[in-house]
Design a protein around this nucleic acid. Structure first.
Lengths: 350, 350
DNA sequence: CTGAAAGCGCTTACAG
DNA sequence: CTGAAAGCGCTTACAG
């Protein structure tokens, strides 16, 4: 076990209070004394003990604010589970959470909710930021005010934040191509890409990764078109129906975002109507309730998950450790791209 | 925040020491008083605060013993990383680890090492048990002595243990079949299964899961033979070479265990010698250094991982929580079957 | 069988 | 600017 603050105090010939002032950058300490204590701490490899610290600060507990577009969003339901788990585990260690949820991505609401968290006096913030100048400006204010921010699920381009926990979207797209590549065995594969929105960075990164992988390794895969469904099932179904009518030779569809069920329905109708054996292969993302039936009935060949639970759990935990003793999180915590197929879920014979 | 032991003491009209005796089943307390305190604790929803407990027991710290066949075993190297991480995180909370490693699965060594850990006075144990009556007998002694045991990576059939953290082998096999199923698109696929040993439960469970999935969903997949390579690369290469000579029509090989590199080499020679375009598809397990080159050069179509890091991390953590305040771990913590393909690792364009 | 005291490692007012 | 004291929630000898 390491040294305690008391031992450092004895070595330095000062009181524990003074060591505390030196170690925690508190005001009211002679710079010389401070330097001496810090040097001593460094050479003895002193690390402040977490259990002691937790108990010591119990009267002024830590609060972390959460802000995210989780209302009516199936994906974020699982992120929320991760957040709740972290909250339960860290409650004993004095952590409190304050959560603000919104429906959809709204710049105004996001800013209002962040401000309301700040008014509550949160010590840190985890959020899924909207990529907008006003939000970035607010994050810059937060950085100036020394309030640490973790981004979750989506990162902010160039904006200041302590760290990001979420998907590696480019690789996710490459993996989608890799799955289709496995299925073609060298034969040509005509693919339709259905994306959420060309305004959303993550969706574009997936497309980019998909195209890079094709270029590098799967010349047999061709892209017929890239269409937007605005993450909407109805629109998604309509787009896919039209595409199938126009290009009945479609072999596969890659969906970068939501609207999966709509696309699946359209494909099922198409297969049913034409009485064809050949099936359109669908690759999509995540494991939301809406896609499960299609994964279980074989309509979806594979879905690529992104550890949503961890996307909630880790930001809270990393923020807590930073607030507790200054432990810096990695700037990027990329969650695993989990390929999920039918056999991950089937129960029958096992 | 919940109540403290002091508040329970005040409510019950006793001292904190007495509350401590009641809550922790310590001797020397009037049964009536104990019952009263326990009732009070239950109705107020009292939970003992971990930070307080950790500091309180600091003079008699917790020690967990680890025993595993990790010497010269690439897979367990990553398990070890998880163990070390847990140790580092929990050191501040007073946890110490004592680790015994052995080369290969030896009943005698395992028992000797476990005994040596017990002689050291460890409070709990995490191990990858050899499935042998002597080991089970020892585990029964441990259970009688109230020493909690977590199994990691392999479970013990029917033996007493607090919980298991590791792969769901049956599902792992089913997923291997699912991957091959994706690649066939309904065309026949003649598969060779290369297993480690027909004496190892996990290997057999993988084969069983593979067969079940085929029966249920992939009638086009046929199994040519099931051969043993004893987890040895040389033997593995030899077996595969002979099999390819005998059945040149082999479409795919499923390896349930180690010896992957040997099999890959044999396939490469075969492809090179015959100048054929059609490639034997290989599906295997884990992400050891030996298989990475073959995953990166396309010889392996997919490898199924099993979160080795977590297999080390979780047992330590769950054991710690159990020892700290009696929190029971889930009996089964099944790690994810992570399908890994080329695109999970390629770096070129990203 | 029970209570009062001291201690784990740290922080927080409060004197000086 | 610095130290001594009290306290966070719990446990551990030690008296009685």
């Amino acid at each position: 076990m390491g040294l305690s603050i008391r031992q450092i105090a004895d070595l330095a010939g000062v009181s524990r209070g003074t060591v505390d002032r030196a170690l925690n950058n508190r005001p009211g300490i002679n710079p010389q004394v401070k330097a001496k204590i810090l040097a001593l701490a460094a050479e003895t490899g002193f690390r402040t003990n977490r259990a002691g610290k937790i108990l010591g600060i119990r009267k002024t507990p830590l609060t972390i604010g959460i802000q995210m577009p989780s209302i009516g969003n199936e994906f974020f339901r699982e992120v929320r589970c991760g957040i709740d788990r972290a909250a339960a585990e860290l409650a004993d260690y004095g952590l409190t959470l304050s959560i603000r949820e919104m429906k959809g991505f709204s710049v105004g609401t996001q800013i209002t909710q962040i401000r309301s968290l700040l008014a509550e006096g949160v010590n840190g913030l985890a959020l899924a930021p909207v990529d907008h100048p006003d939000v970035i400006a607010l994050l810059e204010d937060l950085a100036a005010a020394r309030i640490p921010v973790m981004t979750m699920n989506t990162d902010i381009a160039g904006g200041p934040r302590l760290g990001y926990v979420g998907n590696d979207y480019t690789r996710s797209g490459a993996i989608a191509a890799g799955i289709l590549g496995l299925m073609t065995d060298g034969r040509p594969l005509r693919t339709l890409i259905v994306t959420g929105s060309k305004q959303v960075l993550g969706h574009n990164q997936r497309i980019s990764g998909f195209c890079q992988a094709i270029r590098q390794r799967y010349p047999q895969i061709s892209i017929l078109d890239i269409l937007e469904n605005q993450d909407d099932d109805r629109r998604s179904g309509q787009i896919v129906r039209e595409a199938l009518a126009r290009w009945p030779e479609i072999d596969a569809i890659y969906l970068t975002a939501a609207g999966v069920a709509g696309a699946c329905q359209a494909c099922q109708e198409f297969a049913g109507g034409r009485q064809i054996e050949r099936q359109v292969r669908i690759v999509c993302n995540d494991q939301t309730p809406g896609i499960m039936p299609y994964l279980l009935d074989g309509t979806i060949a594979a879905s690529i998950g992104q550890e949503p639970f961890r996307q909630g759990y880790e930001p809270v935990r990393l923020l807590f450790e930073y607030l507790l003793d200054g432990t810096l999180p990695p700037p990027l915590t990329l969650t695993r791209n989990e390929i999920m197929i039918y056999e991950h879920f089937f129960k029958e014979a096992l």
